[in-house]
């Protein structure tokens, strides 16, 4: 991978991948919270930018430009599945 392509990959992993990962984390956190849904929405969403910032740092700290993408499927997919499972079941039924 050329250096500029590697930088582009990391930037995309940070901004787009980071958003997708944060989205999954927040959605799952809201689902997991045992509070009233109205409270869960706010409580789960408030730490969003901590998660996003961490994702950005990971994308630039990881050893290779491809590894920068690893957390998105590895962490994001199962969390998204957990968060949206009821909706998926509804869709299938």
């Amino acid at each position: 991978m050329t250096p500029s392509l590697a930088v582009l990959s990391r930037c995309l992993a940070a901004l787009l991948g980071g958003y997708a990962l944060t989205y999954a984390v927040i959605a799952a956190l809201a689902r997991a919270l045992p509070t009233d849904p109205v409270d869960a929405v706010i409580i789960a969403s408030l730490p969003a930018f901590v998660v996003y910032t961490a994702a950005i740092l990971w994308a630039f700290a990881s050893r290779s430009a491809l590894r920068a993408w690893v957390p998105v499927p590895v962490l994001g997919l199962p969390l998204a599945l957990f968060a949206f499972w009821p909706q998926l079941l509804e869709r299938l039924a």
Partner: peptide, 27 residues
């Protein structure tokens, strides 16, 4: 945080199926 749910609507999407009206009503 001022634009919290506009930037990150994930929780509304998962708990209220993305229906912001329903969320506002419940809130």
């Amino acid at each position: 945080v001022i634009f919290l749910l506009m930037y990150m609507p994930a929780a509304v999407d998962s708990l209220f199926k993305g229906d912001t009206q329903a969320y506002a009503k419940a809130a």
